[in-house]
Simulated scan of single mutants.
Amino acid sequence: MSTDRRIVLFDLFGVIACHQRPGALAEMAARCDVPTDAFTEAYWACRPPYDAGQGSASEYWAAVLRWLSRTADAGTVEELRLADIDSWSRVDGRMVAYVRSLHNLVEVALLSNIPSDHADAFRAAQPWLSDLDHVAFSGKINAAKPDPAAFHHCVAAMRAAPADFLFIDDREENVRAARAVGMHGHVFTGLDELAATVETWLLSDSCTW
């Protein structure tokens, strides 16, 4: 059931913000004196609990370094943590401008898979996030997409119905998960296509869209 509200719910990385800076993992691998492929495997294999707020940054990096048979001393952990945050810090200026302009017309929210300490740094660097109607970071809400709990958090926090939302993400599995809980969904491929989709949705009867 819809409450006839219109809420555009954005993913962050790959939509508004850029994916991880090219070469960043190789630089971190070199810091650990291990091959990039091995570092990349450990980096992603240990990531889910960190993204979902079920482990701290120190616990995450200790797990990565154990995987690589390296010592998890405090200096190395902090250096890797800061390098990691920096590698995810870039935004797409055109998309930020679009999101801000859209917020003048409808409710706009954000749902991102991002660790808690990354979220704090991103908020500090991007003050426009404070203007949105709701911002949900996985590391803060203890649920990461495509877990249905992440979407249910946004529904409950905004006191809305799932059908009130149009969820935008560059990963099809996340869009499928949003649709499974009753949201509308769009796989992001570019701003022009997105703008046309949003315009059509805003003019439509949400029950038939």
Rank of each mutant, 00 (worst) to 15 (best):
P162F: 08
T197W: 08
A63W: 02
A30V: 09
C46H: 01
S112V: 13
E107F: 00
L194I: 06
H103F: 07
C32H: 02
M95I: 00
W67Q: 14
A177R: 06
A178E: 02
N142P: 00
P49D: 02
H19Q: 14
T36R: 13
W44N: 10
R179W: 00
G190N: 13
S130V: 06
S89P: 03
D37C: 00
R100G: 00
F10I: 09
D192S: 14
Y98C: 11
I7D: 03
G182K: 08
A157C: 10
Y60S: 12
R47C: 04
I7T: 03
T76N: 01
R100K: 12
S58L: 02
L191V: 07
F39R: 02
A163G: 07
Y43T: 04
A29T: 07
D205R: 13
V99Y: 01
D192Q: 13
C18D: 12
C32K: 06
A52N: 03
Q54R: 15
A143P: 02
G93T: 06
K140T: 10
T40L: 10
V34R: 10
F165Q: 07
L65V: 04
V187S: 06
A136C: 12
W44T: 01
P127T: 11
A72L: 03
E172H: 10
D84W: 01
T71Q: 11
E27N: 09
R179G: 08
R100Q: 15
P22V: 07
C32N: 09
A57V: 11
P49K: 00
I16Q: 07
E41Y: 07
A195I: 08
C18E: 13
V198D: 03
F165E: 09
P35M: 07
T208C: 14
R100A: 10
N174F: 08
D120I: 11
A74M: 02
T189S: 11
R5V: 02
D84A: 03
A97W: 03
A157S: 13
E79N: 10
F188C: 02
E79Y: 00
H19D: 13
W201E: 04
W88E: 03
H186K: 07
R47V: 04
G185N: 05
F167M: 11
S87R: 00
D164I: 03
D133H: 14
A178H: 02
P148T: 11
D205I: 12
A161R: 15
V135C: 13
R123N: 08
A124V: 07
F165H: 06
G139P: 11
G14I: 05
C18P: 00
A119Q: 04
S2P: 05
N104I: 00
V8G: 05
Y60P: 02
A57D: 12
R90W: 00
M1L: 12
Y98N: 04
R47W: 04
R171H: 14
A57N: 08
L12A: 13
R94E: 15
L203E: 15
A161M: 14
W88P: 09
R176L: 12
W209L: 12
V135G: 10
W201L: 05
S58P: 00
A30C: 06
A24L: 08
N142W: 03
N142L: 13
D147N: 15
G55Y: 01
V181N: 06
L105D: 08
T40E: 15
V64A: 10
D164V: 03
L202T: 11
W44F: 13
D117E: 14
